[in-house]
Simulated assay, not measured.
Amino acid sequence: MKNSRRRFLKQAGLGVSATFLSPYLFSCQGDKSGNSPFHNLGLQLYSIRDLVNEDPIKTISTVAKIGYKHVETFGVDTNTETYWNLSISELKKVLNDNNLKTHSGHYDMSKYLNRQLTEHENIEKYIEIAHQLGQSYIIAPVTPMDDLNNIKVEDYQYAADQLNKVGEMAKKAGIKVGFHNHFWELRQFGNGTKGLDILIAFTEPDLVDFELDLFWIEKAGFSPQSYFEKYPGRFPLWHLKDMDRQFTQPVVGEKYDKADFTDIMKEVKFAEVGTGAIDFIKIAAEADKSGLKYAFVEQDDIYMSNKFESVKKSYDYVKKYLAK
């Protein structure tokens, strides 16, 4: 399971073979004015992690030229206080030079959320870095992944308590904590309770928000709208990525809940927004109910040789069909 955790949290790529987009591609989709989260679209930079690790300055500049208005960070090194070998001040300058903001970042809290461990990540440092970047959210991107098939109700209750504690610390800096889901938080316990429901029920709304990954909730067999209805206002951040039409089988249920993670991932394939099976237009109609503030394109794995073309394809769809 350690290897699977690395796949989510390390900065490994698929091979640095993509080229940067030619300038003529940037003008293909006219920009629409507006103030909605879909007009002011963000990109989770993990989507193009190999490129940002190789050349963060050029990569961030290209993201801005595509039209993205803000980026979500990942992978901070708290020992050196750097992102991709850029100091915090250098990263701020790159963002400012490209008229980009960063409203949130992913910060590994898997040790902090694990009730079996006493060694924790430096949460105070996360808050300090997020404050320097002007971020409003520090997001826990994943639950502890050491033993996904044996997460108990008590583990989720503990994680919720820990998120509340982070929220209390972050509140002093004007920052809120968030949690980003995958599929396993939608597995059901004996009484029908799900991990995500426990996290929502046991966290304080004024301290903890949720970043709903639309792909993963649908891949678990649930609709985002059902969670907006059940927990209105608790999902001010969305991750937009699509599902390959040949890989729509849910991976939650008796067949999968004790399966090996590697085998489950064989049933998962991502797609650019608007090219797959997810009905984003229908989901976007419930944006107000969810409390949406920030929307991000994110794709865990990109299969196109030019990854900038991929994130531009997703951007163009959102601007054309969701930014009304």
Rank of each mutant, 00 (worst) to 15 (best):
Y46S: 03
M1L: 13
V76C: 09
S223D: 07
K101N: 11
V63Q: 01
V52S: 04
L322M: 04
Q132F: 12
N191K: 14
N150M: 09
G253W: 11
E90L: 07
F189M: 12
Q44P: 00
Q249E: 15
K293I: 01
I60C: 08
S104Y: 07
L95W: 08
S223R: 13
K319C: 03
D213A: 09
A285T: 10
P144V: 06
P236Q: 03
K320I: 08
N122H: 10
E124V: 11
I281A: 13
D161V: 03
K176V: 09
L133D: 03
A170H: 01
F270M: 03
I217H: 05
I217Q: 04
L292N: 01
V52T: 14
A201N: 14
W84S: 13
L199Q: 00
L100M: 08
D279M: 07
G253A: 08
L21F: 07
L91N: 06
Q11P: 02
K307A: 14
E218Q: 15
N53D: 13
P205V: 11
D260K: 13
I123E: 11
G34L: 12
I278C: 02
F215S: 01
D146T: 13
S223V: 10
K58S: 09
S290F: 05
T143V: 09
P205K: 13
E90P: 00
I302Q: 04
S310P: 03
D257E: 14
G274C: 01
W184S: 07
D97N: 08
F215A: 02
F20D: 04
G233H: 05
Q225Y: 05
N85T: 10
L91A: 07
D50Q: 15
A12H: 14
V208H: 04
H39P: 02
D316H: 02
P232H: 00
W216K: 06
K269N: 11
V273K: 02
D260T: 05
F202N: 15
Y317G: 03
S290R: 06
E254N: 07
K307Q: 15
F20K: 08
E218P: 00
F280D: 00
Y256C: 09
T102C: 12
V166D: 02
P232K: 03
D97K: 05
S4L: 14
L148Q: 08
K266S: 09
W238L: 10
Y231R: 13
A323H: 10
